[in-house]
Lab assay of single mutants.
Amino acid sequence: TLFEALYDYEARTEDDLSFHKGEKFQILNSSEGDWWEVRSLTTGETGYIPSPYLA
């Protein structure tokens, strides 16, 4: 399933992933509550992002 970022986000820890509004992601793991592990389709990087920032 693909999701798109609604807002920009700046990583706060080394496990987080910074991203920009409009960036698209593949969800790798959504079992961690509000923090999902994703792969950016723009950069190929993986990390955790806050799920409320996605649509």
Rank of each mutant, 00 (worst) to 15 (best):
Thr1Cys: 15
Thr1Pro: 11
Thr1Gly: 08
Thr1Ala: 12
Thr1Asp: 11
Leu2Met: 07
Leu2Trp: 12
Leu2Cys: 12
Leu2Glu: 07
Leu2Gly: 09
Leu2Thr: 09
Leu2Asn: 04
Leu2Ile: 14
Phe3Ala: 06
Phe3Met: 07
Phe3Arg: 09
Phe3Ile: 05
Phe3Lys: 02
Phe3Gln: 02
Glu4Cys: 10
Glu4Leu: 08
Glu4Pro: 01
Glu4Gly: 15
Glu4Ala: 05
Ala5His: 05
Ala5Leu: 07
Ala5Trp: 06
Ala5Tyr: 02
Ala5Gln: 02
Ala5Cys: 07
Ala5Gly: 01
Ala5Asp: 15
Leu6Ala: 07
Leu6Asp: 07
Leu6Phe: 13
Leu6Cys: 14
Leu6Met: 09
Leu6Val: 06
Tyr7Ile: 07
Tyr7Ala: 07
Tyr7Arg: 06
Asp8Gly: 04
Asp8Pro: 03
Asp8Glu: 08
Asp8Cys: 10
Asp8Ala: 03
Tyr9His: 05
Tyr9Lys: 10
Tyr9Trp: 07
Glu10Tyr: 08
Glu10Phe: 13
Glu10Arg: 09
Glu10Leu: 09
Glu10Asp: 13
Glu10Cys: 11
Ala11Tyr: 03
Ala11Trp: 15
Ala11Pro: 03
Ala11Met: 03
Arg12Asp: 07
Arg12Gln: 14
Arg12Ala: 10
Arg12His: 10
Arg12Ile: 14
Thr13Ser: 11
Thr13Gly: 14
Thr13Arg: 14
Thr13Val: 09
Thr13Cys: 15
Thr13Asp: 10
Glu14Thr: 11
Glu14His: 11
Glu14Pro: 11
Glu14Leu: 10
Glu14Cys: 12
Asp15His: 14
Asp15Lys: 14
Asp15Asn: 14
Asp15Trp: 15
Asp15Phe: 15
Asp16Gln: 15
Asp16Gly: 14
Asp16Phe: 14
Asp16Cys: 14
Asp16Pro: 02
Asp16Ala: 15
Leu17Cys: 06
Leu17Pro: 02
Leu17Tyr: 04
Leu17Ser: 03
Leu17Val: 15
Leu17Phe: 11
Leu17Lys: 01
Leu17Trp: 05
Ser18Gly: 05
Ser18Val: 05
Ser18Met: 05
Ser18Thr: 11
Ser18Asp: 02
Phe19Ala: 07
Phe19Glu: 08
Phe19Asp: 06
His20Tyr: 10
His20Ile: 10
His20Ala: 09
His20Gly: 06
Lys21Thr: 11
Lys21Gly: 03
Lys21Ala: 09
Gly22Tyr: 06
Gly22Asp: 03
Gly22Cys: 05
Gly22Leu: 01
Gly22Pro: 01
Gly22Ala: 01
Gly22Thr: 02
Gly22Lys: 02
Gly22Ser: 02
Gly22Gln: 00
Glu23Pro: 01
Glu23Ile: 01
Glu23Gly: 15
Lys24Trp: 15
Lys24Leu: 14
Lys24Ile: 14
Lys24Met: 13
Lys24Asn: 05
Lys24Arg: 11
Lys24Phe: 11
Phe25Lys: 02
Phe25Met: 04
Phe25Asn: 01
Phe25Gln: 01
Phe25Ala: 15
Phe25Leu: 06
Phe25Val: 01
Phe25Cys: 04
Gln26Val: 14
Gln26Tyr: 12
Gln26Met: 12
Gln26Asn: 04
Gln26Thr: 07
Gln26Gly: 02
Gln26His: 09
Ile27Cys: 04
Ile27Glu: 15
Ile27Gly: 01
Ile27Thr: 04
Ile27His: 02
Ile27Lys: 05
Ile27Gln: 02
Ile27Pro: 01
Ile27Trp: 02
Leu28Arg: 14
Leu28Ile: 10
Leu28Tyr: 14
Leu28Lys: 14
Leu28Glu: 02
Asn29Leu: 04
Asn29Met: 05
Asn29Gly: 09
Asn29Lys: 05
Asn29Ile: 11
Asn29Phe: 04
Ser30Pro: 05
Ser30Ile: 11
Ser30Leu: 07
Ser30Val: 10
Ser30Thr: 12
Ser30Glu: 07
Ser30Met: 12
Ser30Gly: 09
Ser30Lys: 10
Ser31His: 08
Ser31Lys: 08
Ser31Leu: 09
Ser31Arg: 08
Ser31Glu: 09
Ser31Pro: 09
Ser31Phe: 08
Ser31Gln: 09
Ser31Tyr: 08
Ser31Ala: 10
Glu32Val: 09
Glu32Pro: 08
Glu32Arg: 13
Glu32Met: 13
Glu32Leu: 13
Glu32His: 12
Glu32Ala: 11
Gly33Phe: 07
Gly33Pro: 11
Gly33Asn: 10
Gly33Ala: 12
Gly33Glu: 10
Gly33Asp: 08
Gly33Trp: 09
Asp34Val: 08
Asp34Phe: 13
Asp34Gln: 09
Asp34Leu: 12
Asp34Glu: 10
Asp34Ile: 11
Asp34Ser: 08
Asp34Trp: 12
Trp35Asp: 02
Trp35Ile: 08
Trp35Val: 07
Trp35Leu: 07
Trp35Glu: 03
Trp35Gly: 01
Trp35Cys: 10
Trp35Lys: 08
Trp35Phe: 08
Trp35Asn: 11
Trp35Thr: 15
Trp35Met: 09
Trp35Tyr: 09
Trp36Pro: 02
Trp36Arg: 00
Trp36Val: 06
Trp36Leu: 06
Trp36Lys: 00
Trp36Phe: 04
Trp36Cys: 03
Trp36Asp: 00
Glu37Trp: 14
Glu37Ile: 11
Val38Cys: 04
Val38Ala: 08
Val38Ile: 02
Val38Arg: 00
Val38Phe: 15
Val38Asn: 00
Val38Tyr: 00
Val38Gln: 00
Arg39Thr: 04
Arg39Phe: 05
Arg39Asn: 01
Arg39Gly: 00
Arg39Ala: 03
Ser40Leu: 05
Ser40Val: 03
Ser40Trp: 04
Ser40Asn: 14
Ser40Cys: 04
Ser40His: 07
Ser40Gln: 04
Leu41Gly: 01
Leu41Thr: 05
Leu41Ile: 09
Leu41Tyr: 02
Leu41Trp: 03
Thr42Tyr: 06
Thr42Ser: 11
Thr42Met: 08
Thr42Ala: 13
Thr42His: 08
Thr42Trp: 15
Thr42Leu: 13
Thr43Cys: 02
Thr43Trp: 01
Thr43Ser: 08
Thr43Met: 00
Thr43Arg: 00
Thr43Ala: 00
Thr43Gln: 01
Gly44Phe: 04
Gly44Cys: 07
Gly44Val: 04
Gly44Ala: 02
Glu45Asn: 09
Glu45Pro: 00
Glu45Ala: 11
Glu45Arg: 13
Glu45Tyr: 06
Glu45Val: 09
Glu45Ile: 09
Glu45Asp: 07
Thr46Asn: 03
Thr46Phe: 06
Thr46Leu: 14
Thr46Tyr: 04
Gly47Glu: 02
Gly47Ser: 15
Gly47Trp: 11
Gly47His: 05
Gly47Phe: 08
Tyr48Asn: 09
Tyr48Ala: 02
Tyr48Trp: 14
Tyr48Arg: 13
Tyr48Lys: 11
Tyr48Thr: 05
Tyr48Gln: 05
Ile49Cys: 05
Ile49Asp: 00
Ile49Pro: 00
Ile49His: 00
Ile49Ala: 10
Ile49Phe: 01
Ile49Met: 15
Pro50Cys: 14
Pro50Ala: 06
Pro50Ser: 05
Pro50Thr: 07
Pro50His: 12
Pro50Glu: 07
Pro50Gln: 07
Pro50Val: 03
Ser51Gly: 09
Ser51Gln: 04
Ser51Met: 05
Ser51Asn: 14
Ser51Tyr: 10
Ser51Trp: 14
Ser51Val: 07
Ser51Leu: 05
Pro52Thr: 14
Pro52Leu: 14
Pro52Gln: 15
Pro52Met: 15
Pro52His: 15
Pro52Lys: 15
Tyr53Ala: 14
Tyr53Asp: 09
Tyr53Val: 12
Tyr53Gln: 11
Tyr53Thr: 12
Tyr53Arg: 12
Tyr53Leu: 13
Tyr53Lys: 12
Tyr53Asn: 12
Tyr53Met: 12
Leu54Gly: 08
Leu54Pro: 10
Leu54Ser: 07
Leu54Thr: 06
Leu54Met: 07
Ala55His: 11
Ala55Pro: 12
Ala55Arg: 09
Ala55Tyr: 05
Ala55Gly: 11
Ala55Glu: 12
Ala55Ile: 11
Ala55Asp: 12
Ala55Thr: 10
